[in-house]
């Protein structure tokens, strides 16, 4: 996973509340063998609405998505996080998130920033013309107009995101402990420790 220090760039001023994961990626995109390529299906139904932000050339390729309350509710599909990443979104700013989406976003290296609704309203305005900067180290969201909002984040998640550590990577960092268990198991439980040939 890529380490995140700062995400700076244009943002989709989407703003919608209660966006469920079926909206993020409809069910017919789930029969896949890849995490990639789902960006094409991301917000598929919203893209058909006239004047939507996702088909607007002004926002194409934005790394940030601004949304309303309870983003990512509904189905637990991890595909929602994969789809956002595949369309280039590495941070979401919203007042709140569903627990499952928040977990899936973290597992896949997406920064989910929670800010109060008035801050969201202001950022929606700015995003129409100017870039936004999220500084994870200092936990701030800033604009070129001296706006400065601070956000909270779980210290463990912050550490993981700053250092590009996904859960797999974190456990791999405990290689010494795993190897030492394997050494002991070779003596104590050889019948389990010995593998089969490919």
């Amino acid at each position: 996973m890529k380490a995140i220090k700062e995400i700076s760039g244009k943002a989709y001023p989407f703003g919608r509340k209660n966006v469920d994961t079926d909206v993020v990626i409809p069910a017919h995109w789930l029969k896949t063998i890849s995490r990639e390529g789902l960006g094409k299906g991301c917000f598929e139904t919203v893209r058909k609405e006239p004047g939507n932000v996702f088909e607007d050339e002004a926002y194409k390729g934005s790394p940030i998505l601004i949304a309303g309350d309870n983003f990512g509710c509904g189905s637990s599909r991890e595909h929602a996080a994969w789809a956002l990443l595949d369309m280039g979104i590495t941070a979401v700013i919203a007042p709140s998130y569903s627990d499952i989406f928040s977990g899936n976003a973290f597992k896949n290296g997406i920064l989910a920033v929670a800010l109060p609704q008035d801050a969201i309203d202001r950022l929606m305005e700015v995003a129409k013309t100017d870039p936004i900067t999220i500084d994870l180290e200092h936990q701030t969201v800033t604009t070129p107009f001296q706006d400065r909002f601070t956000f909270e984040i779980d210290p463990f998640r912050k550490h993981c995101l700053l250092n590009g550590l996904d859960e797999v990577g974190l456990t791999m960092a405990r290689n010494t402990a795993i190897s030492s268990y394997e050494d002991k198991a070779r003596d104590a439980l050889p019948f389990l420790a010995k593998g089969i040939a490919a």
Binding site: T32, S34, V168, I196, A197
Partner: peptide
């Protein structure tokens, strides 16, 4: 399993104990 294998490939990771896997 397909997305799990894909993730390993993307991250350049190996299967730690292929001999414990079937």
């Amino acid at each position: 399993s397909p997305q799990a294998f894909e993730a390993l490939r993307v991250a350049g990771r190996k299967v730690r104990r292929p001999d414990l896997t079937l």
